[in-house]
């Protein structure tokens, strides 16, 4: 039962991500004028800066999560 729940929720998550991508793809390839007026190109392109910042934040967070995992491993080894 638990496995099945997990499976279903994973499928829903994948579907949600995919539908997001398709709408984004339609926006950027629909036609030329539409692609130049999407969110990331609006307002002096400030959202590009935000996208870059979010990327760096997530990248560094992933790096620190790796550190967390290594520490957990060491803790387990010390307990043994």
């Amino acid at each position: 039962m638990n496995m099945r729940k997990k499976y279903i929720s994973t499928c829903i998550a994948i579907l949600a991500v995919l539908s997001g991508f398709t709408s984004w793809a339609q926006d950027s390839t629909g036609n030329n004028t539409a692609s130049m007026t999407d969110t990331l190109r609006s307002n002096g392109k400030i959202y590009v800066v935000i996208a870059v910042l979010v990327t760096i934040l997530f990248g560094l967070l992933l790096y620190i999560v790796q550190l967390d995992r290594k520490i957990t491993n060491l803790e387990k080894n010390i307990k043994k």
Binding site: L40, V48, A51, V52, G59, L60
Partner: peptide, 21 residues
């Protein structure tokens, strides 16, 4: 290792920047 992480972030942020400029 840290150099690689920063380099990858530089590459990805560069791609995002390039996409819109």
């Amino acid at each position: 290792k840290s150099g690689i992480v920063f380099g990858l972030l530089g590459l990805v942020t560069g791609s995002i920047w390039a996409r819109y400029t």
